[in-house]
Design a binder for these strands. Structure first.
Lengths: 279, 279
DNA sequence: TATAAACCTTACAGTAACTATAATGTCAAG
DNA sequence: CTTGACATTATAGTTACTGTAAGGTTTATA
């Protein structure tokens, strides 16, 4: 049986001639025989076994370089070590993909809310299930600061989040808290901002839980940052007292979606204020 | 509040200055102001919102180019379309990773068997659960062919498998079948080779099931292809008749692991013959 | 035997999303 | 006025290829 030209070998193995030439170039698989006069590469069908293994290890996520090293070292133990590494890599990838999926669904949900909320009535009572957040105390009252200061605090929050490698669902979805004691005194004072965490995330000294329950909510489009927040908060307070509801915890200002598509710099915020009420 | 230099902006956003310069270069985010005299880039803290969104969409698996297009088109609908695409991509990835994981575990298992089987006794009775295979009829009796012909048939099998996009667990793990009627006549005749499929794969006219049950097994290292297969098969037949066992189906010759690390071309095969028996 | 089609060769550019380096210029503090 | 930190541009490298150009070889057909 005669030798195979590069094209024949390529066709038999479902890869391109270019790829075979490339593999030769990086020293991964060398043709059985090369015609010195013409430089033509000739392969043996039996070399397919090696191509199979290359394909397999490649599809296991290994780089061509590490595959080449395995071939050079000719040590089964190295393969076994590599498999263990691969398994770690796989579970890492799985975790990653799961997070991405959650984040994407959340993103989708947020955008839908962003589009629909404007058509809904301003004030409503909604039930929320438990939410986990990562809180950061900026030590500055955000109601006495401008957007630039707010951004600086956000940056610090983000750094903390990255430092602790927390599974943040969607970083653009942030919020701030006014503690119950201040909101009862109508005191707009908040130094704490937060991001929502993945439900399954572990607790630590910065994570906090927003309890499940009924919340009186009002939605609006933020103008120039939070300048119109208090106006809408007042409507919400009026609604609560008119309906004889009782405030049951901290006031939450959630930034649902901000799409800096339209203006280059200033955040384009859709805000939902939430006050837990006793039922 | 003064403008931020590229380094300050980079630090605040946990990216490198190089990356910011790169983003400027590809037209993704332009600094708020550039000093014409020195070319220094100066950013505004508020541009962080855009960087946040870039980071988020990047981590959703989008390319910088498509993110840039979204920014240019300024159309929320495009984002929504993109999210749907992303969700498809995610489920594709999940499927992919799951397959890779299975294949890696199978690979690991095979290598372990390869290392340990040689220490075990040659003949034993083992229980197997149901296995799915993709069968290919090469129309040539592989016991009358050489390794090159065998390789050619393997290539054809592989092509079929790829064509039908079947979820093959590990392509190096192949086998051949001698049908019951032939094995009872001691007739070494087989034109069929196969690969193992993922358990969850759908049936079609080429897929077949190897039934669960007890199998008399013998393991050995293949020499020069399958030249020593019949010698070991004979030992297995002797064992079966000595123990008054009854052959209950097709004879299977499984190539457990072949690592073409040691010699460049010829397959380095560890073979396990399996004959189903009545219990 | 001529010629055309199909195939082979090398060399180089391009992909994505950066990182690293070199050579040089600018800024802020002491 | 110097020093050190920081900025600039330009270029090359990363991975696993694909695509193209310019030219040489093989094979089949007229």
């Amino acid at each position: 049986m005669r030798r195979l030209t590069i094209g024949e070998m390529a066709k038999l193995n479902n890869i391109s001639s270019q790829t075979l030439r490339y593999y030769d170039q990086i020293g991964l698989i060398h043709p059985e025989w090369i015609d010195d006069a013409t430089g033509y590469r000739y392969y043996d069908i039996n070399q397919s076994a090696k191509l199979d293994l290359i394909y397999h290890m490649k599809s296991l996520g290994m780089s061509l370089d590490s595959i080449r090293q395995l071939f050079e070292k000719k040590d089964i133990r190295l393969i076994e070590e590599n498999i263990e590494k691969q398994l770690l890599w796989i579970s890492e990838k799985k975790r990653e993909i799961a997070l991405i999926e959650k984040a994407t669904l959340k993103f989708k949900h947020n955008i839908m809310e962003y589009r629909e909320e404007s058509r809904k009535k301003e004030i409503e009572i909604r039930a929320f299930s438990e939410r986990k957040i990562f809180c950061f105390d900026g030590k500055v009252n955000i109601y006495e600061s401008d957007m630039r200061t707010y951004e600086f605090i956000l940056r610090k929050l983000k750094k903390q989040v990255m430092l602790e490698k927390l599974p943040v669902v969607y970083f653009c979805n942030v919020g701030s808290i006014i503690r119950k004691e201040n909101i009862l005194k109508n005191n707009f004072y908040s130094t704490e901002i937060f991001v929502f965490l993945d439900d399954a995330s572990s607790e630590n000294n910065h994570t906090e839980t927003i309890p499940a329950g009924s919340y009186a909510c009002i939605s609006f489009k933020g103008e120039e940052g939070f300048s119109n927040e208090q106006e809408y908060a007042q409507k919400l307070f009026d609604f609560i007292s008119e309906n004889d509801l009782e405030i049951d915890g901290d006031y939450i200002c959630e930034v649902i979606t901000e799409l800096p598509f339209f203006c280059n710099s200033i955040r384009n915020m859709f805000i939902r204020l939430q006050i837990p009420i006793k039922v």
